[in-house]
Write a protein that binds this DNA or RNA. Structure first.
Length: 560
RNA sequence: GGGCCCAUAGCUCAGUCGGUAGAGCACCGGCCUUUUAAGCCGAGGGUCGAAGGUUCGAAUCCUUCUGGGCUCACCA
């Protein structure tokens, strides 16, 4: 044995990349650029398939006879390469989402291409082929290749051709590979594109104007969520990535755009889950001289049409649920949902009495801190509770023996009838979330939201503790949120004030006071209804995907 | 952030009681002129996610870390 060291073994992947690189070099040696850009296909594979499908012979044809004399030219990614010595089969796939097989045979292919190009071809390469089509004796439409070019030499091997890419982490991180080998994944994103186009077409037909409003906001508004904070250098100004476009869109309604919509990203600085990605796509639209009831009708029509166009049916399966989108959808008030679905018999009393509501909420598992926060709703400016006192109160409230006394003290602290109702409504809504939300499987419009959880919605004329608002639930998930807009500037100022106080009392997700928005309302906003629809969730529903990451091309991941 | 689970060849996965690494596909060489998960013969390919620890000996047991999945919380 010699003491000469063995060269360190190359890893498999490095070896394969090296071999493929060498094939690129070999192509150059024969005068072919391995990343050439001087050849274009003339025919989309899907069109070729559609055109020649009628020519499929009834009985298999042993002879290799072109269907007609036309030379076709197709290009796409080689999905595999099956060699038989003097015959090689190469199925290719192009952007028309179709495959066709190249039949490469020494007797038909140009001699130089067979000797110089074919040996350098690997699965994964982008190739172009020219020749007539024929049917093989196994009944497969194929290109009888006369000329063959490698347009782009691929250096990395494709994943297992049978299993595809199954590791979900790699599918999201290397979406280009996932898409290249998985037609099903491509289909989801093609459908997503059709859905978004369908939404635009639906709204455009109804004279809505598509607009783009700022995505960097100087103050937080339009929703209850924590924002991403950023900074503008030249202006030395803090900015927030928007959590909702709502307040800008309504400024446009003030300006005379009676029907506007925007489809774009919102950003919310919260946890990730199957239902949440920090950036997500939201449709918001506003229609003057309409009410939330008009928008429920519109939503039913729009989602139903999208289902017809994209799924071809109003019945679909999502996350294990058989759904029926046929109109009309059930309409149910929050109070009714608590009573009927949540099984809370005393629901009517709950929404009128904060003490009963607090007790009921605790019984159904609402966290003590949330209950206490609701019971502090409506305190006059300047009497906010400090974080220390808040923590003490929550601790006392958690003790069943002390709870009635603590709750009574909180309720009596500002015992106007209006505030009592607001607090009861807030607690009633938390009761809804705890008892009924998950049971809303078939499409359901939940209506008449408590005022406390709807700072931008119009107060109901008959029952001022509720708002003219709805949310659409399907499979226990919120899909849409709409309401008649609050256009009374004085009421809006009071609601903003309540938000500011809730933040001071410890609520994490609140809006800032937007004085310019109030000024806009003072100019006068026509009676208007507005709605937001989560496009990602809509796409999930219509494509049957259980995870939001499967409808977002590049979901947020930790760095590799 | 909490709980549960996962990480072995380029890909998909085995790996028993702790005894020093396996298969299929891919890749490389050979045969093959209608295949389609082509077939047959042969060869190569591994820091077993990372770092510590226990042990004569660790892919295997323990600890920590990293990344991911599900779930809870928060939210839409």
């Amino acid at each position: 044995m010699s003491d000469r060291r063995e060269a360190p073994p190359e890893k498999t992947l490095e070896r394969i990349i090296g071999e493929r690189r060498d094939k690129g070099t070999a192509l150059r040696g024969h005068g072919h650029h391995p990343y050439r850009n001087d050849i274009s296909p003339r025919d989309a594979i899907a069109a070729v398939r559609a055109r020649y499908l009628p020519s499929k012979p009834e009985v298999p044809n042993e002879a290799i006879t072109p269907v007609d004399g036309e030379l076709l030219c197709v290009a796409g990614r080689a999905m595999s390469k099956r060699g038989f010595g003097k015959t090689v089969f190469v199925p290719i796939r192009d952007g028309s989402a179709a495959d066709i097989q190249l039949y490469v045979n020494i007797e038909h292919l140009a001699a130089d291409d067979f000797a110089q190009v074919l040996p350098q071809l690997d699965a994964g390469d982008l190739v172009c082929a020219e020749g007539p089509v024929f049917w093989t004796k196994r009944g497969e439409l194929s290109i009888l290749v006369k000329r063959l070019w490698i347009l782009t030499k691929s250096l990395r091997p494709l994943p297992d051709k049978w299993h595809g890419l199954t590791d979900v982490e790699q599918r999201y991180r290397q979406r280009y590979v996932d898409l290249a080998v998985s037609p099903d994944v491509q289909d989801v994103f093609r459908l997503r594109s059709r859905i978004v186009r369908g939404v635009r077409a639906f709204l455009d037909r109804r004279d809505f104007l598509e607009v783009e409003t700022p995505m960097m906001h100087p103050i937080i508004g339009g929703a209850a969520a924590r924002p991403f904070a950023t900074h503008h250098n030249a202006l030395d100004m803090p900015l927030f990535m928007r959590i909702a476009p709502e307040l800008y869109l309504k400024r446009l309604v003030v300006g005379g755009f009676d029907r506007v919509y925007e489809i774009n990203r919102n950003f919310r600085n919260e946890g990730l889950s199957r239902k949440h990605n920090p950036e997500f796509t939201m449709l918001e639209f506003y229609r003057a001289y309409a009410t939330y009831r008009d928008l429920m009708d519109l939503t039913e029509e729009m989602v139903g049409q999208l289902a017809d166009e994209v799924v071809g049916s109003r019945k679909l399966t999502w996350d294990g649920h058989e759904l029926d989108l046929a109109a009309p959808w059930r309409r149910l008030s929050v109070l009714e949902a608590v009573r009927e679905l949540g099984g809370v018999a005393e629901a009517d009393a709950v929404f009128a009495d904060p003490l009963l509501a607090a007790e009921c909420a605790v019984t159904h598992g609402v966290p003590a801190a949330d209950v206490v926060l609701a019971l502090l709703e409506g305190l006059p400016a300047g009497s906010e509770v400090s974080p220390a006192v808040f923590a003490e109160t929550v601790a006392a409230f958690k003790n069943p023996g002390e709870r009635p006394r603590v709750a009574r003290a909180l309720v009596e602290r500002y015992p106007s009838e209006e505030v009592r109702l607001i607090r009861a409504g807030h607690l009633g809504y938390q009761l809804f979330e705890a008892t009924a939300e998950q049971k809303l499987i078939q499409p359901t419009f939940l209506t008449e939201y408590p005022l406390a959880v709807s700072p931008l919605a119009r107060r109901n004329d008959a029952r001022p503790q509720f708002c003219d608002r709805f949310e659409l639930f399907v499979a226990g998930r919120e899909i849409a949120n709409g309401f008649s807009e609050l256009n009374d500037p004085d009421d809006q100022r009071a609601r903003f004030q309540a938000q500011v106080q809730a933040k001071a009392a410890g609520a994490a997700e609140t809006m800032d006071y937007d004085e310019d928005y109030c000024r806009a309302l003072e100019v006068g906003m026509p009676p208007t209804a507005g709605e937001g629809i989560g496009i990602d969730r809509l796409v999930m529903m219509l494509t049957g995907q259980a995870s939001i990451r499967d409808v977002i091309l590049f979901p947020l991941m930790r760095p590799e």
